[in-house]
Design a protein around this nucleic acid. Structure first.
Lengths: 140, 140
DNA sequence: AGCCTTGTTGCATGAGCATACATTTTTGTT
DNA sequence: AACAAAAATGTATGCTCATGCAACAAGGCT
């Protein structure tokens, strides 16, 4: 029960609490999971609003299989469509639809606001500040 | 894609990465999930090495139902035993066994070391530092 | 009696691992 | 050089797991 270990636990729990709150809001108001929302964001930022499964997995730090199923969900909602790569027929592009873009635009303000609120309430902001100040991850 | 939102995402991912690493180590070397390990720690710290489901749930910030099933796992491994409260017959104590205590003692050094290593590698340490410095959560 | 509290159970969800499948790329042989 | 075999790559699918919510059962409190 090192003090450091204890502190880490509290950080983890704070982050988890904030994430849970964000997730609930997105789910209730927009039918989106946290990962779904972040996938839409990644797609919007990407050139031509499309990414391959693996790229999406890398952005979200998720398993490739998880991404496959997530894209399935997004597709069922009409927020994205799959598109085969012409050059590499193994690859699959996930492309943001207009509906997806609109949905994201609608959700974003709520997300941002909820994030600020939740961080303020659960102390994520302080962690965030330090995280910003320092260099985060060491080089691979 | 506010800068703040982006930063938050990186913090979340760093924390998740560290947690995943810890989880893998505990699982591989000791057959314990992260929550299981933390439950054992909470039990060890508790007076008489016993806690009720609700108390455990509060410590771990988990649902009661999740805790109920987690305790089931711990019990299958022989690390804890259930014990009825004599005074309140609804209540159930989860009591740390000698085997559980020994298992925890064995796992702890690995856990602590892995935590330090992983934090150093993925930048959790900085977040931790700020988290320590500031007051964390506001009063409920 | 009625209501709250405590724990357990049924169901759904999101994630990971191992695997299968299709397509590319590389390597070896003639 | 040309072709076949082998390895590597990109997705999808089956299974399992930990978790949350809602419904329930059992015990306590007013």
């Amino acid at each position: 029960m090192s003090a450091r270990g204890d502190l880490w636990l509290r950080l983890v729990q704070s982050v988890a609490t904030v994430e849970a709150e964000l997730g609930r809001i997105l789910q209730d108001r927009y039918g989106l999971g946290l990962s779904d929302y972040r996938a839409l964001e990644a797609l919007e930022k990407a050139p031509k609003s499309e990414l391959r499964m693996q790229e999406l997995a890398a952005h979200l730090q998720l398993n490739q299989s998880s991404v496959s199923r997530m894209v399935e969900r997004l597709e069922r909602g009409g927020f994205t469509v799959r598109d085969l790569c012409p050059d590499d027929k193994r690859g699959v592009y996930t492309v943001l639809t207009d509906k997806g873009r609109a949905h994201l635009a609608a959700a974003r303000p709520d997300y941002e606001e909820a994030l600020e609120t939740a961080m303020a309430r659960h102390g994520g902001g302080d962690a965030l500040a330090a995280f910003a100040g320092a260099g985060q991850a060491a080089p691979a």
